[in-house]
Amino acid sequence: MGCISSKTTKYTPGYEEPTVLAAETPFTISEVEALYVLYKKLSSSIIDDGLIHKEEFQFALFKNRNRKNLFADRLFDVFDVKRNGVIEFGEFVRSLGVFHPNASVTDKIAFAFRLYDLRGTGFIELEELKEMVSALLHESELVLSNDIIEAIVNKTFIEADTNGDEKIDPEEWKQFVLKYPSLIKNMTLPYLKDISLAFPSFIITSEVDD
């Protein structure tokens, strides 16, 4: 009779092997394991089912259960690749991987495009952009009149929509970002460069050597 290990670990639903995720992202295996510790904490903060729900995501960002923000909403939706209303572990790691300093600029540009493509049509449309600017300004303390917002959005559109079809496609977006690189500045989190140094307590639980 074979020997069966008595060590059992209960993983969350949608768990994926760190070796697989490390191969697909800029993270090492032990960093993925550190992210799993973080994931477990976030995914049980409000609803203890091992999956990150939108309110848990927003709670982690704002430390406030009632705080809502359109951009946080968009981030959740883009992290939730399967569009099933929760962020699974693999989605969490792959999405965070895009924010890694070593991730490709192409991936960052594509991720940012999905954030702005509110309705998921494959294009950033004029109305979507107006909606987003209005909503975000409404949430922030910056007060601009509708006329000014409209003028800013229209001017941006004329510049970005180089083929003049009233929507920004991924290639036009790429060219626009290359012209204004600060637009993807938020797409890089230096913290992710070495999670094990920034969060040494997470790494103690590591079971696999890289």
């Binding site: 704002f62 981030l75 975000l136 922030s140 601009l144 001017k155 600060s182 637009l183 913290y191 920034a198």
Partner: peptide
């Protein structure tokens, strides 16, 4: 000045949080 920014810069600047908050203990 907000008026001199393009719409995407305006969105980026008005973002009031960082994903780094996820890592706060």
């Amino acid at each position: 000045k907000p008026v001199s920014m393009n719409a995407f810069e305006l969105i980026s600047r008005s973002r009031e949080f960082s994903l780094e908050n996820l890592f706060e203990k």
